[in-house]
Amino acid sequence: MLSLRIRWTKQGRIRFTSHRDVARIWERGVRKAGLPVVYSQGFVPRQRLSFGLALAVGQESEAEYLDIQTNLPPVQESAIHNAELRHRLSNALPEGMEVVAAAALEPGEPSLQELVSSCTWEIDLGEDSRQAWQEDIGRLLGAVELPIVRERKGKRREDDVRPAIIGIRMADAQRGCQRVCRLIVELAVKPRALRPNEFLALTHAPISATRLVRRTHQWIKRNGKKYEPLAMVSDVSEGFAQHHSAVPLARKEVCA
């Protein structure tokens, strides 16, 4: 039995599908790709797929993860070619979903839900004023506490979300052929995730539904260091990546 960890992207139109839609797309995709996945026993057998953090409808991601339990022999004996596997899975997925990395999991590796402690997000600001955003950054990072009221299981309670804001910075970026101003924020997912929309609600320009939000990294903390569950690798030609390492992303920007 061999478990695989898959890193995949969700970009373009497909970002309007829900977490539930994506789960079904993966179930069909795994069958189409002919991957020998393990099924649960019971009344309605289900594939043993375990998804990481959900992504909200409309958000893009360069760092989605999925663990798949397979019936493949242990990694040393598996004749699966990493690049071929990525290719086979990507072909079975719709446009905009692409498998960018795959690796065998060591037995006993905790689930994605347990591992991930924070995520990095990019938020495109478009024409918004730079000055006001700079002030927001200063104010938020300088705050001692940032109480917000949230509802959970029908109960309203106040949470201090300041500890959940790990970092904020601004960057210039290119979106298509347009220069845009971009906010890069790292938000904690534990003990309770601070969502990008909740973060934006703390700024001078609370919510604009049409703003493009993209998850670029999920982070694991181990021995005081930060790792990604699986690095985005562009040219692994064979074998499985056994180690986590943070590799900077090269993003393709195509200008028509």
Binding site: R13, I14, F16, T17, S18, D21, V57, G58, P94, E95, G96, A209, T210
Partner: peptide, 19 residues
């Protein structure tokens, strides 16, 4: 169409791209 989709219910039904 794209800028309207974040404002509507179940936007995936308008994106096409089905297998």
């Amino acid at each position: 169409l794209e800028p309207l989709l974040p404002e509507v219910q179940r936007p995936a039904r308008y994106i096409g791209g089905e297998d």
